[in-house]
C-alpha cells in the first residue's frame, strides 16, 4: 500500500520563554492507505498535537510531514485548505457542526464550496451517506434537535463527502456513552473496510483495541507500537487485554 502520511522527526512546542513546552519531540511515523491506526497516551502526551501536525492543521517547528508525497510545510495556506477539503476528513470530540444550519446543510457545506452547480448530486450523496450511517430522515433537523451520537454521525458524513484518502478522528467517541461510542467505532471500521485510512486519537483502550495498529505516546514521543490482526467483532476482551498490558509495561 502506498504511504499517505510520512512524518519525519517532527517537533512542536507551545508557549514562550520559561512557559515553553515541547509537545512533539522528534516524532516519526508513517501511515499507509487503508490502515486503521489509533494513537493512545495520557493527557498531554502529544496525541492530538500529532494528529493536527500530520493533517496540516497545525504547523511544525522542526522536521517535515509528507502527505501523499507533498511536503505540508511547503504548501501555501490555500493549498493546505484545498488538501483538507478534498483529501482528508475530520471528526472531532465535539461535533463541530454549524449552528443555524440543519444536518443536511452541514453535511454538504464543504462540498458546495467548489461545486455549487451540482447541488442535486451532492445532496443525493449526502442522503446516501446519512442512510448508511443510520441517520436517514434527520436531514431537516437542527443540530439542537438530535442526540450526540447522531451529531457525530452527521459529522462523519460531512467528513466522507469528499471521499477522502484518510479520515482523522480526535477523540471522536469521547463525548458519547458506551453504546453510541461502539456504534461510531463500527462505522469507522466499515469506512476502513472500503479502503479509507483512519487515524484516531483516543485514551480509551476499548476503542484502541478495535484498530489494527496502536501507537503509544508519552512526553511527545511515540514510545511503542502494537499491531493487531483485523478485528472480527468477537475477540474484543483479548485485544483489550493486550493493549492494557502494553500500557502497564510502559507505565502509562
Amino acid at each position: 500500500m502506498k504511504k499517505i502520511i510520512a512524518a519525519d522527526h517532527i517537533d512542536k512546542a507551545f508557549g514562550q520563554g520559561i512557559e515553553r513546552r515541547k509537545v512533539l519531540n522528534g516524532v516519526s511515523v508513517s501511515i499507509s492507505g487503508g490502515e486503521f491506526v489509533s494513537v493512545m497516551g495520557p493527557s498531554g502526551s502529544g496525541k492530538s498535537s500529532l494528529l493536527f501536525a500530520v493533517s496540516g492543521m497545525d504547523t511544525v517547528d522542526g522536521g517535515q510531514v509528507l502527505f501523499d508525497g507533498r511536503e505540508l510545510g511547503a504548501l501555501k495556506e490555500n493549498e493546505l485548505a484545498d488538501l483538507r477539503r478534498t483529501q482528508m476528513g475530520f471528526v472531532f470530540q465535539q461535533p463541530t457542526l454549524m449552528k443555524n444550519m440543519n444536518l443536511l446543510d452541514n453535511i454538504i457545506l464543504p462540498s458546495l464550496r467548489d461545486n455549487r452547480r451540482n447541488v442535486k448530486a451532492i445532496t443525493e450523496k449526502a442522503r446516501q451517506l446519512m442512510s448508511k450511517t443510520g441517520i436517514a430522515g434527520l436531514e431537516k433537523r437542527d443540530i439542537t434537535q438530535v442526540s450526540g451520537g447522531q451529531l457525530q454521525r452527521a459529522g462523519i458524513c460531512r467528513a466522507l463527502m469528499s471521499s477522502p484518502q484518510i479520515l482523522f478522528g480526535d477523540e471522536p467517541t469521547g463525548a458519547l456513552n458506551q453504546e453510541a461510542a461502539e456504534g461510531i467505532m463500527s462505522l469507522f471500521a466499515d469506512i476502513n473496510e472500503t479502503g479509507t485510512a483512519v487515524m484516531l486519537v483516543t485514551h480509551d483502550a476499548r476503542i484502541a483495541a478495535r484498530t489494527g495498529r496502536i501507537l503509544f505516546m508519552c512526553d511527545g514521543q511515540i514510545v511503542s507500537e502494537l499491531r493487531l490482526p483485523k478485528f472480527r467483532g468477537t475477540e474484543l476482551e483479548g485485544r483489550m487485554e493486550q493493549v492494557v498490558t502494553r500500557m502497564r509495561e510502559l507505565g502509562i
Binding site: R85, T86, M98
Partner: peptide, 15 residues
C-alpha cells in the same frame, strides 16, 4: 470557533 471549524473543513482565508 466556527472560523476554526470552517478552516478545518477546507475553507480558505479568502473564503
Amino acid at each position: 470557533y466556527p472560523i476554526a471549524v470552517m478552516k478545518s473543513l477546507g475553507f480558505t482565508n479568502a473564503d
